[in-house]
């Protein structure tokens, strides 16, 4: 069974009184994690098991030592793209509903605020966070040009994908793990960049009152 491992690269964090804000600089998404999820995110280092994380939650937050609380937190993190997946495909068999977790925590006298919860938003581009000038779409021309350039960059990255795949196969065959990691990292970076560009583009379309791609 895989132990959960949180994604921490390119993540900036800021602590509030009862929540933690995470900002993903790669995908420009921001998340608000309540205390329970934040603690699971911090504990999920790939070494600790779900039972061990449940123990940490019990010790620090005083909630029942229950795997279902951790699993719900991991689901929230997975939905937010903050955990490496798949965590444990077998967990579906022991899936517990949010309502069930609320009931368990309630019976144990824990606060409802500790029920695992994540809120996520996409950070806007400057154009998305401004009023159109007199409703004039011309103001988006420069934004669209930037996005077009961004997508073109990604198109090049994808054009090189076949080469990257050949290199990857060669690296695997040669047992060169460092090179394998580097190629996979490059591909993941290209994917993130493309996703960000598409998000930007949809933002401009939305600002113009048009449907997304």
């Amino acid at each position: 069974m895989n132990n959960p491992r949180a994604i921490r690269d390119n993540i900036f964090t800021e602590s509030l009184a009862n929540e933690t804000i995470l900002y993903d600089k790669a995908n420009h998404r921001a998340h608000s994690l309540n205390k329970t999820v934040a603690m699971v995110w911090e504990a999920a280092d790939g070494d600790k098991s779900i039972d061990e994380i449940a123990g940490i939650l019990h010790d620090r937050l005083g909630i029942p030592k229950d795997r279902s609380v951790v699993l719900l937190a991991l689901e929230e993190l997975e939905t937010a793209g903050l955990i490496e997946a798949p965590i444990d495909v077998n967990r579906i068999a022991e899936h517990t509903s949010r309502r069930e977790v609320i009931r368990k925590l309630g019976l144990a006298g824990a606060s409802a605020a500790l029920v695992p919860f994540v809120v996520s938003v996409v950070a806007p581009t400057p154009a998305m966070a401004s009023s159109p000038a007199a409703g004039n779409p011309q103001q988006y021309v420069s934004e669209l040009q930037l996005i077009e350039a961004d997508i073109a960059k990604n198109a090049n990255a994808y054009a090189n994908n076949a080469t990257a795949q050949k290199d990857l196969n060669a690296a695997i065959a040669a047992g060169n793990q460092g090179l394998v990691d580097q190629i996979l990292g490059n591909k993941a970076g290209a994917q993130a960049q493309f996703t960000a560009a598409a998000t930007d583009f949809n933002g401009v379309l939305a600002a113009l009152g048009l449907p997304p791609l």
């Binding site: 900036f12 929540e19 804000i21 600089k25 994690l33 809120v119 938003v121 996409v122 400057p126």
Partner: peptide, 24 residues
């Protein structure tokens, strides 16, 4: 919540992508 309130502002923050730390 405090976090939701912050995100509501962040969703409308002009330079958050360029200045994430300062903005947040």
């Amino acid at each position: 919540t405090e976090g939701e309130t912050l995100l509501a502002l962040l969703q409308n923050t002009v330079a958050v992508r360029q200045q994430a730390e300062l903005s947040i």
